[in-house]
């Protein structure tokens, strides 16, 4: 068997990228930015609030963390919902104690089902960003464009009703987009998305959408659930990351991507609280929401 001759033809072999979504640039060659108060490391806590229907959907794919056993999977349905009932309140208390604001990437189903929780998040001054409808609301190429447009609209309208404010930011489930997603997000009036993990500063797509990278490598899901490391190791890794970025001196974003059912378990939450207390004492740290970081960056472009 031989390969088609076109397999060694490269029509997009050219300077920059093999796509036209955003432009190529190396971080150190851009105009420097600085965070408010002359700080260099923006610490962005982003909490995913997820509701997993007990009837999972595999089209286009099943979300990470979703139902695993034959129906009815009480085990995973309830262990995930624990995060929305108990864990998230530990995080809210921890953020209050540290005197910081966070972004909550929220399924609109959470707003519809648990309005008390949304009220508590809004009352504490945190940002709500849109995180699809529920954990069956996955996106990838192959989803009809009208369905994707409707899913984005449903999510935004429901969150706007619950919070009184239209979300400025969007996080896709598993950060998965279709070819259409950036334009659909822009069309829906969103200012920024968090899906592309290729940078440590915000940058602009060619269509005007801003991407604020929410590095999956630094998430509790990746470090604790996927790589099976301890909460103490997670906290040490975040300290090592902070120390490195602070040493570099240039403005950078350190995202802390947190999942209530993962990090806010009784035996893990203490490690996070200690981490936040520690980072709070660092002179280079600026604790900010996604919208605040995007705003500070945009003002300097």
């Amino acid at each position: 068997m031989t390969l088609d001759p076109s397999y060694i033809e490269y029509p997009k072999r050219r300077h920059g990228y093999d796509h036209e979504m955003y432009r190529w640039s190396a971080i150190h060659e851009r105009k420097p930015v600085i965070w408010p108060g002359g700080k260099s490391v923006a610490i962005w806590a982003c909490v995913s609030l997820e509701w997993f229907p007990i009837v999972p959907n595999d089209t286009p794919f099943r979300a990470p963390g979703h139902i695993q056993t034959a129906y009815p999977d009480y085990r995973h349905y309830t262990a995930r919902d624990y995060g929305n009932r108990v864990g998230v309140y530990r995080l809210l208390d921890g953020f209050a104690k540290a005197g910081m604001k966070a972004s909550f990437a929220t399924n609109s189903a959470i707003a519809e089902r648990y309005p008390e929780l949304i009220a508590d998040i809004v009352a504490a001054g945190h940002e709500v960003i849109a995180h699809s409808t529920d954990m069956n609301g996955t996106i990838a190429t192959g989803v009809p464009v009208d369905e994707e447009r409707a899913l984005i609209a449903r999510s935004l309208e429901s969150l706007e009703r619950a919070t009184g404010t239209r979300p400025q930011g969007w996080l896709s489930i598993a950060r998965s987009q279709s070819w259409d997603t950036p334009d659909l997000l822009r069309e829906a009036g969103l200012r920024y998305c968090c899906d592309w993990v290729n940078d440590e500063l915000p940058y602009r797509f060619n269509n005007g959408l801003i991407n604020l990278p929410l590095n999956h490598e630094l998430s509790d899901r990746q470090i604790i659930t996927v790589q099976q490391q301890s909460a103490d190791s997670y906290a040490q890794q975040m300290r090592d990351a902070f120390d490195w970025l602070a040493g570099e001196g240039a403005a950078r974003v350190l995202p802390l991507h947190l999942t209530p059912y993962i990090m806010a378990l009784p035996y893990r939450i203490g490690a996070l609280e200690d981490l936040l207390t520690d980072l709070r004492s660092r002179p280079q740290a600026w604790f900010a929401t996604g919208a605040e970081i995007v705003g500070a960056w945009e003002a300097q472009q």
Partner: peptide, 23 residues
């Protein structure tokens, strides 16, 4: 592993060229 674009797969590797190569 995902239908194209595999956003995390592609952009994770792009981190090399935008940021982490120089580090």
């Amino acid at each position: 592993t995902k239908p194209h674009p595999d956003v995390v797969g592609y952009s994770h590797r792009d981190h090399s060229n935008r940021v982490s190569h120089w580090r």
